[in-house]
Design a protein around this nucleic acid. Sequence first.
DNA 1: AAGATATACCTAAATTACTTAGGTATAAAA
DNA 2: TTTTATACCTAAGTAATTTAGGTATATCTT
Lengths: 112, 112
Amino acid sequence: MSNQKLYKGSLQTIILKLLATNHKMYGYEITQKVKELTKGELQITEGALYPALHKLEADGLLDIEVVKVENRLRKYYKLTEIGTKETTDKLEEMQQFLKTMQHLVNPKFSLE
Amino acid sequence: MSNQKLYKGSLQTIILKLLATNHKMYGYEITQKVKELTKGELQITEGALYPALHKLEADGLLDIEVVKVENRLRKYYKLTEIGTKETTDKLEEMQQFLKTMQHLVNPKFSLE
DNA sequence: AAGATATACCTAAATTACTTAGGTATAAAA
DNA sequence: TTTTATACCTAAGTAATTTAGGTATATCTT
């Protein structure tokens, strides 16, 4: 992907949306899910993901549940009540952003 | 706008697209045009715009034409041949990005 | 049996695109 | 005459990332 930098600023929203859809996920699972959903177009790096998850948790948007599976640790994350609210807001902002950008780069085929 | 940070990484593409559509524009005009096109949703700051224009020029994507209008300077920018090519590429990347994000945050209403 | 790949977590320095906060100068409007 | 609009600019600070490591277990390949 040569357009990786366009995704700057959208990582939190992507994480929150995935957790809203899938209820609970662990970090590695999120990287794989995004790769699958985007057919390889977007690869979330772990250097970006883990700090982002820690920040969302520190901000009270996510709760953690640590589980040992096949002798390996997994940290499951899920949305808190605040996190669910924030997800709604961030998804609205994202939709607005996508609509505006679509309009800017291709006025003839606006989403509206 | 609370979603300003989503626009990170898209400034170059926006500038190039505007120049592809309007043939030649000067910096201040670009800020006003973007504000108008996005109904105030996106305000390009001059602190971001001017360095971006200088970089695009340094990279050979833009040519300058300085004009004195009503005793004030205007620096008109237009696409070079390389710039025109790059614009096509960047717009394709942007479309791909928008499609992918739309699919990610709202799989039910994908653009395809 | 060894080495590579996949799973699963992590951090820290460097990069980069931006925001913030200034600066200069002319013209028009309040 | 002071504010707003036009028109350019720079530099320090910020924040989200990339890059480049690290640890450890399980599985697949040769």
